[in-house]
């Protein structure tokens, strides 16, 4: 359940709406981001993810609705940098600054002790690149510098927009450890990505939007379970099984040879029992694990009425 233990913790979005030129980019969006876990924010390109994050961070004013970070809009906190750290993209840094200089000015602006700068450079393994200009850093290094900047003030909440871009598999593993470690201290992590397979490795909970509206707000595991899984069966003569399943209205997808088929809507144990009853000899039985990407595509591609497909838990105190 993604229900906040306290209204003052995490992120709380209620009825958030934003339009540009008559086009509604974010549409009555409501969700909570709980502390203590990594929450992924997913959606196809143009879904309104970045605009939503910008409204949460106080960079963009909402048309209507509210976005609270630790109980109130971020700009209304006495020390917003102490509450939230954010990374909005590697391009949002002055390319002429050195890596150290980038953290230096943020430290000065936020009153952060200089010793913390060295800690963060060490954390993201940029100590030896501290004197290099940001323009001379690789995309992955710039991503890590941006993450260091987000963590510099030791905030309670971090919000990362597409932090996986430019990271190699080792970098993604590193970021997963970093964010899990951060969340395990009871703090809040919200990250957006269109790299769904990578998000699947990092997030504990996902919020999916399309056309600015909520599509799903579930723990990742629950979303996986609720998604229809397929079972691959293999045998010399599957015809009795497949005929029986068709009669029962269960979806089957045999290959041309008749020795392999994919079955949707039944657990493997049910299929096994059915095979025993029908006298069908199986040589293979395996669950086909659907990736988050498949689930995501299924959620965002089906039907015209997006609200019909909304998968979510009720939000305590939600007004929208």
């Amino acid at each position: 359940m993604n229900v906040l233990p306290s209204v003052d913790e995490g992120i709380s979005v209620r009825g958030l709406t934003k339009s540009y030129g008559g086009h509604r980019v974010v549409d009555e969006l409501s969700f909570d981001v709980a502390p203590g876990q990594v929450t992924g924010f997913l959606g196809p390109n143009g879904a309104g993810k970045s605009t939503t994050l910008q409204m949460i961070l106080g960079l963009t004013s909402p048309g209507s609705g509210t976005a609270a970070v630790h109980g109130r809009p971020l700009p209304e906190h006495a020390e917003p940098a102490r509450i939230a750290g954010a990374f909005l993209g590697a391009e949002h840094m002055l390319p002429g600054l050195t890596a150290r200089g980038h953290l230096d000015w943020i430290a000065a602006a936020t009153g952060t002790a200089p010793a913390r700068i060295d800690e963060m450079l060490d954390l993201v393994d940029l100590t030896r690149a501290r004197s290099r200009r940001i323009s001379q850093l690789s995309l992955g290094m710039r991503q890590r510098l941006g993450i260091a900047a987000a963590l510099l003030t030791d905030p309670e909440v971090i919000i990362l927009d597409e932090p996986l871009n430019g990271l190699d598999p080792a970098g993604i593993t590193w970021l997963r450890s970093l964010l899990t470690d951060f969340a395990s201290t009871g703090r809040t992590v919200l990250l957006s990505s269109h790299l769904l397979r990578e998000m699947e490795l990092i997030a504990h909970h996902v919020i999916i939007i399309r056309d600015g509206a909520l599509i799903a707000d579930r723990p990742l595991e629950e979303l996986r379970r609720e998604s229809s899984s397929r079972v691959q069966v293999q045998g010399t003569n599957l015809a009795p099984l497949l005929d029986h399943l068709r009669d029962e209205g269960i979806s089957v997808d045999p290959d041309g040879s008749g020795t392999h088929a994919a079955i949707t809507g039944l657990e493997p144990v049910e299929i096994f029992r059915l095979c025993v009853r029908l006298g069908v000899e199986l040589t293979g039985l395996a669950t086909e694990e659907r990736g988050l990407e498949d689930t995501f595509l299924g959620l965002t591609d089906t039907g015209d009425d997006r609200h019909r497909h909304t998968l979510r838990h009720p939000i305590q105190g939600a007004t929208a």
């Binding site: 000065a108 936020t110 009153g111 913390r116 393994d125 963590l151 030791d154 080792a170 590193w174």
Partner: peptide
């Protein structure tokens, strides 16, 4: 190296990092 450390150091600092006057 462009490969980040696989195990991050502790994220929570013992002393409050914001100790100076913002300017």
């Amino acid at each position: 190296t462009s490969t980040p450390p696989t195990i991050p150091v502790s994220l929570r600092v013992s002393a409050a990092p914001i100790a100076l006057r913002p300017s």
